[in-house]
Design a protein around this nucleic acid. Structure first.
Lengths: 191, 191
DNA sequence: CGCGTAGTGCCAGCGACTGACACAACGGGG
DNA sequence: CCCCGTTGTGTCAGTCGCTGGCACTACGCG
C-alpha cells in the first residue's frame, strides 16, 4: 500500500528519534527503525541517504526561510541587524516544532557522529546566509564574518531556549544579539 | 616483523593520501590502503579508528601547540592578539608539512565526508582555544567569540597560503588579522 | 634463557548502504 | 472504462566499513 510516501517518511523520522533516545544512536540499527515505521529497511534508504540524515530534515526548510527573509529585509540595515531580522522571521519554524526539536537536541548532544553532521549543516546554513547577505550588497568577506558570528548568536539563543522554555525563542534571540552588540564594541563603551 | 609501529602508521597515512588522490576517497577501500602500506587491513584499524581519521593525525599536535602558546602569550594582550601570537608560534607545524598538507587539502575539499570531519576537528580546536583564553582571564563568552573569529582568520590564511606559496604562511596570517581588525571597526569609525 | 609486552595476521561476523528486478497502487488520457 | 506511465515499495544479493577473539612473532629486560 504505497500511499503518499510522505507519511512513511514522517513515521521513519519519529521511529528513529524514539529509538535513538531509547537505546542510543549506535545501538540502533536501520532495520529496527524501518520495522518500527512499518516499512522495509530498503525503503528507509529511499527516504534518507544515511542513518544520520533522518534527524536533519528540517534544515532545508530553515535555510529557505532564512535566505528568503534576508532577501526581503528592509534596506539600509547593517549586516548583523539584517540577520537578526531574518532569524526573528524564522523562529516560528523551530517553535512550532519543539516536541521534536527538544529530544532531537539531546540525542545529537550525546552522539559524536550526529554532532559532526550538525556542524556540516551549520556550515551549509552559514554559507547560504553569506550568499544571501552578499546579494544584499554586503561585501563577501564581511558577509562571511557576519554570517558566522550571527549564526553563533542564533545557535546560542536556540540552546538557551531549549534549556529555558519560559521565555520565547524570540526573546532569547534578541538577548543574544544584545550581548553580541555589547561585545563588538568593547573599547567603545558607549555608543 | 612488528617493527616500531610508528613506521607502519606513517606508511598508512601516505598510502591513504596517495590512494584518495588517485581514485578518490569513496573509490578507495581500507583494504587497499593496508595493502599499499604492506600491512593487514586489521592493522589499519589498530592505528586509526576509521577511514577518515588517517588524514587528521596532525590536529592533536596543532592543538597542543596552540593551547601552549596561548598559555605563554605576553600579558595584557587583547584576546585576538593573543590568538595571533599563538598562531604565529605554531605555523611552522604547517609549513614544515606542506608536501603532505597540500594534496591533503585538495582531497578534503573534494570529499563531503572528509569536510565533515574537518569541521569537527575545527570545532574541537576552537573549543580548546576558548578554554585556553578563558584560563588567561578572558570571560568565557568573549573567549568563545574570539576563538571563532580568530580561527576563521587562521583558516582563511592557511587556505590563502596553499593557493599562494610565494608568501609565507606568517605573512598571510598577519594580513588576515589586519583585515579582521579593519572589519571589526566598520561603522564604528566614530561613535 | 625465560617472560612480559607490543604489534601484527587471520578469521568470522554485524551492520550500513547499493544495485537490480518485480510488484502494487494510484492518476490521467484514450 | 481500461490502459499505462509514474511513484512508492518489497525482496535479494552483494560490497565495504568496522569489531572481537585468538594465535603468533618480534623485541626488552631481568
Amino acid at each position: 500500500m504505497p500511499r503518499s510516501g510522505a507519511e512513511a517518511r514522517q513515521r521513519l523520522q519519529q521511529a528513529a528519534l524514539d529509538l535513538y533516545r531509547e537505546h542510543g544512536f549506535d545501538q540502533t540499527t536501520t532495520a529496527q527503525i524501518a520495522a518500527r515505521a512499518g516499512v522495509n529497511e530498503r525503503t528507509y534508504f529511499r527516504h534518507f541517504p544515511d542513518k544520520r540524515e533522518v534527524l536533519f530534515d528540517g534544515e532545508t526548510v530553515l535555510r529557505a526561510a532564512l535566505t528568503q527573509a534576508v532577501a526581503q529585509a528592509p534596506d539600509g540595515l547593517p549586516p548583523l541587524e539584517m540577520l537578526l531580522h531574518a532569524f526573528r522571521k524564522s523562529v516560528h519554524i523551530l517553535e512550532d516544532n519543539r516536541p521534536f526539536a527538544e529530544p532531537r537536541f539531546a540525542v545529537i548532544a550525546a552522539t559524536p557522529a550526529l554532532r559532526e553532521r550538525e556542524l556540516a549543516k551549520a556550515a551549509s546554513l552559514i554559507d547560504a546566509l553569506t550568499q544571501a547577505l552578499h546579494r544584499r550588497g554586503v561585501p563577501e568577506r564581511l558577509a562571511g564574518l557576519a554570517a558566522h558570528t550571527g549564526f553563533a548568536a542564533f545557535h546560542h539563543a536556540a540552546q538557551a531556549w531549549l534549556d529555558d522554555p519560559a521565555q520565547s525563542l524570540d526573546a532569547h534571540l534578541r538577548h543574544a544579539f544584545d550581548e553580541l552588540r555589547a561585545l563588538s564594541a568593547p573599547a567603545a563603551t558607549r555608543d
